[in-house]
Design a protein around this nucleic acid. Structure first.
Lengths: 211, 211
DNA sequence: ATTTTTTTGTTAAAAATTTAACATTGTTAA
DNA sequence: TTAACAATGTTAAATTTTTAACAAAAAAAT
């Protein structure tokens, strides 16, 4: 793929695919742009525009072929072969993510978890083996892990991020409330649940004031 | 606050505040825009612009007064009195969120959890009492809960959202991978961890291809 | 005392993203 | 057959968001 797709389009493609997979399961073979739009709370124009950008052409008045579209989105956002992912921090959030992914056949496979708690090390959780933080560097290299999801307490965030970088990881998804720094050849995505909640609270307040 | 702040600014204000609170703890009384920027991986101009929008003026060559700025951000994004929040789904993710918030003195207080599992109902987790889903409507009204965080399995998402709306909730934060529909007087924020991970994977792939 | 430096605040420009407008074309209906 | 309709695909406009440019002023350096 030589295209230079907008970041937002990438996010939506992932979401379209999820919705499409559900449609497929329910036996639907075609779907209209406005149906996809309604599911995602966006406009039909935006859906069509995104699909235009990836060069997919639907059938006039029939909509889009669900299966074809799923495949095309896969060609664009997936890698040719599976990518290995690790969870660092096997607390509640780490386990939640593992369960989230368990059973989903996806190009992204969580193949290892890391923790400092000796009680967890050596066990497997939902099929994912837990290693000690000290073995992180070697294990990441041995298992060819490319992406790390950080779900450790905030105080460990910086240290863990540094270790991940040293291990040669290519992407980090940081669920810690603490921002971390990485060299620019490592893709970093940070998400903060507190910010999201505060945002909701703000708009709730906003709305109650303006009525 | 009569201002019409950009959504992105709201998000950043929440993040600035978090960083500022840490600064305050470490005894720092003033901070420069470029220091805030560096922490958040953004530019100093953006910080200054955001602060301009909320009408805060720093001291030339001294930077911003940390305490004052924290207070001002609070005036803008917080409500005058605390807002009550509920977690629906006391699984791993729900508990993770509760622990996240535990001990933080914040205007946002998680005052109830809900679950269908009878073993959990009646217990408290990190100080948050767990109620049955069936009691949701009455409990939400009794405790004056304004915001609901959905952390249930995807299959229950739609049902739970409908119940929340009927209970008179004003904002929903949906961590389910399933988009839900709400009337437009309810503020809805959806976040999907799988999308975030797929996005990281895409840009990792992207980067490896273009070198 | 004057110059340089550093930092803020703000206007203007640029870039990214969304929305609107509309041409096109199968399909259905009159 | 012809007209109306309903959907896609695409260009253009509008909006939102970010970045650049630069004036102003306090502090530091000369």
């Amino acid at each position: 793929m030589i295209k230079n797709l907008p970041h937002k389009t990438i996010e939506r493609l992932s979401q379209y695919r999820r919705a499409l997979l559900i449609c497929l399961d329910s036996g639907k073979t075609h779907i209209y742009s406005h149906e996809i739009a309604r599911i995602q709370h966006i406009t039909a124009v935006q859906v069509r525009r995104d699909l235009m950008l990836i060069g997919y052409t639907g059938t006039l008045r029939k909509g889009y072929n669900v299966k074809e579209l799923i495949d095309l989105i896969g060609q664009i956002i997936d890698s040719d072969d599976g990518i290995h992912v690790a969870i660092i921090g096997m607390g509640n959030l780490g386990r939640a993510l593992i369960n989230y992914f368990a059973g989903k056949r996806s190009q992204l496979r969580i193949v290892a978890g890391f923790d400092i708690n000796p009680d967890k090390i050596g066990n497997t959780m939902s099929g994912v083996p837990c290693f000690g933080i000290d073995d992180m560097e070697s294990t990441i290299q041995k298992l060819d892990i490319r992406i790390g999801i950080m779900t450790v307490p905030a105080d460990f965030a910086v240290e863990v991020a540094d270790k991940l970088v040293k291990s040669g990881i290519k992407g980090i998804l940081n669920y810690t409330p603490k921002p971390v720094n990485v060299p620019k050849d490592v893709y970093l995505e940070e998400y903060d649940m507190i910010t999201s909640l505060e945002k909701v609270a703000f708009f709730v307040k906003m709305h109650s004031e303006t009525e």
